[in-house]
Design a protein around this nucleic acid. Structure first.
Lengths: 338, 338
DNA sequence: CTGTTAGCGCCTTCAG
DNA sequence: CTGAAGGCGCTAACAG
């Protein structure tokens, strides 16, 4: 059954259904698409439906979009920059569900940095959501039938503005405020060692600086933390760097769960622990953060709400309406590392 | 040059390119596709290429597949059963790259269990790789133009046989042997609490039983471990259950990294630690496993090799050749929890 | 209300 | 070696 090869017969077409039901192709099209403004007598309708079922008819996606001049595929252009996390997976799942609700089909394609074998040769999406797209790629897409392009790094993109202005700022603000409320006034930023995250890290740092300034705090001390490779040694060095400052850093904002875990590992190297010797607050959430020693206090991002906003943005763009204002999506999850 | 022949609103078509270059549509098709058996004079070729570039021409994916009668999209039907992990993300990335090498375009779609809004209405893939597909869905796909369907839960599927026969068995065998070589003869299995993993867990348990039997060991004692939710309490109970047995379980095979992390958390509740009080070996790998206390000894699965095998399987099926034998993909990563 | 007729953009014989 | 013509499966005007 599974694992076999092609069957020999041709797949049924709408013409086959029409013949089988003894009607014309347009009638078939009308009943199968529920076209309104057309009143089809019930018996005819039934005959068509039955014929379609009998023939196991499924319309050809290509022919449909070719003829309609517009597909209903939304491409999620997955960046090589971001390692896959449970959060990301959830986002994609929510996006698929919410787009389906809107009559669109979400599909992801990991972009491997080699321009070779472009997805767009194989699929013509009606909209694209991408992390980092060169400007000429954006115009090329637009030029080639993509009606809505959202680039999360383009300054002028309203969704990008939300990501950086609301989401990232929300994370930074909540991290700083939580630490502040625990009495920490000299803060650090644990930036991911992973080079792929350099750009995202830069943005976070900017947001953290702003958040600190807003509360009259000095800029956070940024230090790279190894999230990869074996050695906890560099993590220990990072912790030492913070603690040796005068005045010493007593609270750290971590870029993500892995960075937070690394800070904990670095503390352990010195025989120290959070929050007594250094408070740590992470971002994003994951099973590993829950199971850490101590369980990590995190700023979580609501992926369902995020997905809803992205879908709203895309549909608005497609309808020629302005992109709605973005919601707040961040929230502190209290655990024991602050 | 030849005077803005392409109407501005519409995207350029191959006819526009032909007009712009002063040749016929077929000539355009020939040079753009490098059709062999057709000798095109170099100057003509150049003119066509330049015209295409000038017009920013990109062929219409739909028209192409419609006309060729076969698309080059491979659909990765992502199961709602499996939470997204770094490993899975890597696999998808590798698959995309390897499929591209083979001239195919991999695309994922999270399957939301609601049959509504089927992807196949929007895309006609030439092949599908899915986790769990009802038999009738498989035949329906086959019937509707999908030339190769791989269902990872269908008994008769050669790839499924590899997954369970080689990959899962490899994980189980290496876990058992590693524990055995450290002197543990009474083993436990930490099964994930997450209900979505129930089926996968059942298969793993079966493989573990076989591996134990092969070494004359009693069957492993399976206990659920909470990977979700706050409380480490149930994890502590699980650990207690193992230790109170007579003879006591002294080594545990964890289903994945999260389950392994949970066992560590359970140990901590009792003031105990791995490996002294209970040895733990996980499966899969992740940053969190590296950063655990102690760093987790794991059986890792080589995702690149896995991806290559899947691609080979699909291309073989498409060419009507038998699926090649699957490679070994498992390996022990030594750290400090055994 | 139903059937006929044109395309959608491309590929692929087949003549020239 | 190039151009003309037919068809892939479907939708959407337009007749009947």
């Amino acid at each position: 059954m599974a694992g076999g090869t092609a069957r020999s017969g041709r797949r049924a077409t709408s013409a086959d259904v029409a013949r089988e039901a003894g009607v014309s192709r347009s009638t078939v099209s009308f009943v199968l698409n529920g076209t309104k403004g057309q009143t089809i007598p019930e018996p005819t309708r039934q005959r068509v439906l039955e014929a379609a079922a009998r023939l196991r008819y499924a319309p050809s996606a290509e022919a449909r979009t070719l003829s309609r001049g517009r597909s209903d595929v939304v491409l999620l252009y997955q960046p090589p920059q971001l390692p896959m996390t449970a959060d990301m997976g959830a986002l994609v799942e929510f996006l698929a569900a919410e787009f389906a609700e809107a009559g669109l089909t979400a599909v992801t394609h990991p972009w491997s940095r080699k321009p070779d074998g472009d997805v767009l040769t194989a699929i013509t999406p009606v909209a694209v959501i991408a992390w980092d797209l060169p400007d000429d790629a954006v115009t090329a897409m637009r030029h080639n039938g993509v009606r809505a392009v959202i680039s999360l790094t383009a300054e002028s993109d309203p969704v990008a503005q939300w990501i950086w202005g609301t989401r990232e700022n929300g994370i930074a603000r909540l991290q700083v405020e939580r630490l502040l409320s625990a009495g920490h006034r000299r803060l650090g930023y644990a930036r991911p060692h992973d080079a792929r995250l350099a750009e995202a890290s830069e943005m976070r740092l900017k947001a953290l600086r702003q958040a600190c300034a807003a509360h009259g705090l000095p800029a956070p001390v940024a230090v790279s933390i190894p999230g990869d490779g074996e050695g906890a040694r560099p993590a220990a060095d990072a912790v030492a760097a913070w603690r040796e400052l005068v005045p010493a850093v007593t609270g750290v904002c971590a870029h993500d769960d892995v960075a937070a875990l690394s800070v904990l590992a670095g503390l352990r190297e010195h025989g120290l622990a959070a929050p007594a010797d250094l408070a740590v607050i992470g971002a994003g959430d994951s099973p590993a953060a829950r199971l850490a020693v101590p369980p990590l206090t995190m700023v979580a991002v609501d992926m369902l709400v995020t997905a809803r906003h992205l879908v709203a943005a895309v549909t608005s763009l497609l309808d020629g309406r302005p992109v709605p204002a973005g919601p707040e999506v961040t929230q502190v999850i209290e655990r024991h590392s602050v």
